[in-house]
Design a protein around this nucleic acid. Structure first.
Lengths: 137, 137
DNA sequence: ATCTATATTTAGAGTAATTCTAAGCATAGA
DNA sequence: TCTATGCTTAGAATTACTCTAAATATAGAT
């Protein structure tokens, strides 16, 4: 759990003025949330922050994405945008039973493609779909 | 270019009653369109069909997807759903310069993943992103 | 500390994409 | 031809998000 000061420093470092709202949102996404949507963040804020408007949630998310502190994703099973504090390149596993998204390290995956050479690939995004057999509940 | 009769037969075969609107939409997607959105289909219908409501466009698309005749996709660069008449499993290349989507045959791609065995993968969806150097315009 | 210019937050209106509703039409089978 | 069911329609509603303009907060100069 990173403290507010550390979070504020990360914001400033990325060129984002560290306001109370921004610190709260970024801290929540980094420390507590797991691939949240704007709605989840708003719900959390309603419980844990004196007062925050929906517009601020969206403004902040857009600013954090632009600053490179968050990455936004759209997945085929959802019409909402999802935010990820893991900004280094990675893939995802979508559990089709629970809807849970899990980050997958690209080092665990190898892709060999024989596309025609007119295709200049700058990025490969993989979505694994399936289910996850956790040991026992 | 498949004729209306063939298209109607495909609809019936999939358990979908072949109405004029459904035939027109499915024929357009199969024969002419390239990964269209609902909006593109509506625009086409406004030019090429006596009268079709937007609700019918959406109803029809949902019915065709449910019947397995179309597949719907959401891509990270767009907030609209995209429809694909190619319903056999394949990947996509997204040209980040033109926004064009190109189907990629899974046989051209090999993926080896060493995920923990609790992950039961039923499908792998790959999005290649980059640009395409076509020979000369 | 105080002022001030600029940045941020806010509520509410606006927009885009899609779904819903309920009435009117069309169609297939009796 | 009748009728039940299914389809289409216009328009309202919903969802997810963005915009607007006013209020508030903040950083840096004084």
């Amino acid at each position: 759990m990173l403290d507010a000061k550390t979070i504020a420093a990360k914001l400033e470092e990325a060129g984002v003025q560290a306001t109370a709202q921004r610190i709260a949102i970024y801290q929540y996404i980094v420390c507590e949330a797991d691939h949240p949507t704007a709605e989840e963040i708003k719900d959390w804020a309603d419980q844990n922050f004196p007062k925050m408007s929906l517009a601020t949630v969206y403004n902040t998310l857009n600013i954090l994405v632009a600053a490179g502190l968050l990455k936004d994703y759209r997945f085929p099973n959802m019409s909402k945008v999802i935010y990820d504090s893991n900004v280094v390149h990675h893939h995802h596993f979508l559990d089709d039973e629970t809807g849970q998204l899990i980050d997958i390290d690209p080092d665990v995956v190898e892709v060999t493609s024989k596309l025609k050479k007119e295709f200049h690939i700058s990025q490969i995004q993989i979505l694994f779909r399936g289910t996850r057999q956790t040991v026992r509940k």
